[in-house]
Design a protein around this nucleic acid. Structure first.
Lengths: 232, 232
DNA sequence: AATCGAAGATTGTTCAACAATTTTTCCAGA
DNA sequence: TCTGGAAAAATTGTTGAACAATCTTCGATT
């Protein structure tokens, strides 16, 4: 995927294209949370004008992938405790709602089962990234039950922010392996038509996932402040 | 509200300022759905450069207040049948979810009761706009139960789009009066802690509101195509 | 009257410049 | 040596002009 130094590919909505380039670089962890995106160097590196880069920034800021501080520049968003809480506030509403009131068709159920199978395979082969991907796919698919593009978009934003959270953690322990089984039961419950149970279980899942993530984030911050201390 | 021909008020985040000006003009119905926002005249009228107006457009497009057609310009969004369906898909998920799982405090209940009282007053005095406002306030407050700024933001966008729908209708009959009582019972159920009932009732309310709105929208389109026919 | 093609207008993008603000540098004074 | 703070440098916010690409309009031709 050669993204820079191309120069060509003119006039195909440059601004959206630049936005997508930055988006994937951030998602890939190439641009780490908190790092500054200076206009002049970046525009030069990407081969676009400062002006269009700026417009791409607006797009990404709207997706809260990037935070803009007036007169100080834009930075890759680095979600903290409050952001994680907000993420789970959203998920704890829309995911169970999708389970309770979404349009559960046999086709969708097959899809969900395929995803949990992928997750199981990933766990068996010990690939944490694949497991994370499968997990995100599952929850994305759950929200898709709503049939709403807006809710899907909100969920996508939230999941992108989740990836940022993981990127900002130096040590990324295995959050996902012990949730695979829960996902399996979730799909089983859906298949059985037990929506209330599924929704309740999903809420419990989200609660514990949030708690675990927040705990680890606290440790992380402690470690960082420790380092800071040591640096003095 | 003198918005243009001011010239001063320099350097206070012009782009955001312009975006908010356009946003309120559209919300007020000054700029009607479907009307084109040409860059050169508008930038001249607002006293800003075409470039910053353009950036403001990006913001508003992100809020789907405005739709951007490549190489053809930006237009005030004019939501149709599909958009209304999407609006209610969203509302039918997040409002009942907020009722079921939101944080219902006595303070919030008082607030909700104050709002339904306003709605009743508006109905008694026959003020349809006030009733519409109170109705929107109520549903906004319901979503606030989630405590999530993202969901609140999504709801705000949705309600803004609702206003556009109403603005795009030549005849705006009284949608709201026969929903006031339903809102009253909703708050009563919340006060009584009967969340499941409240959520179910709310979903029924949203279903019928959507149906009614879609029916009227269909009539509207029929009328318009009739006019178009007559013009030929 | 319908079709095709050439002006004309509008949007998308870039460049260069300047004002406003932040950050850095550096020096005087304690 | 350390601190305070003013000057200098760097960066962001905004503007205006310019040009390519695309859409629109209008007229010429058949």
């Amino acid at each position: 995927m050669n993204t820079l130094a191309d120069g060509t590919a003119e006039h195909a909505h440059t601004t959206a294209w630049i936005a997508s380039v930055l988006r994937s670089r951030i998602a890939a962890g190439e641009l780490t949370p908190g790092s500054k995106l200076s206009e002049e160097p970046l525009s030069a590196a990407l081969g676009v004008s400062r002006n269009t880069l700026r417009q791409a920034f607006s797009t990404l800021a709207g997706e809260s992938i990037v935070t803009r501080i007036p007169n100080r520049g834009v930075f890759v968003a680095s979600p903290g405790v409050e952001e994680v809480r907000e993420i789970y506030r959203v998920r704890r509403m829309i995911e169970p709602a999708a389970v309770l009131w979404g349009d559960v068709t046999p086709k969708v159920l097959d899809n969900l089962e395929a995803i949990v199978q992928q997750a199981q395979q990933a766990r068996d082969s010990g690939s944490v990234p694949d497991m994370a991907d499968a997990n995100q796919s599952l929850h994305r698919a759950v929200v898709a039950l709503t049939g709403s593009t807006s809710l899907q978009g909100l969920m996508d934003r939230v999941l992108a922010e989740m990836r940022l959270v993981f990127h900002s953690m130096s040590s990324a322990p295995d959050f996902h392996s012990h949730y695979v089984d829960r996902n399996v039961t979730l799909v089983k419950q859906l298949r059985a038509g037990k929506r209330e149970e599924a929704a309740a279980g999903l809420r419990a899942y989200l609660d514990s996932a949030e708690a675990e993530l927040l705990a680890h984030l606290g440790d992380e911050q402690d470690r960082q402040s420790e380092l800071r201390q040591r640096a003095v």
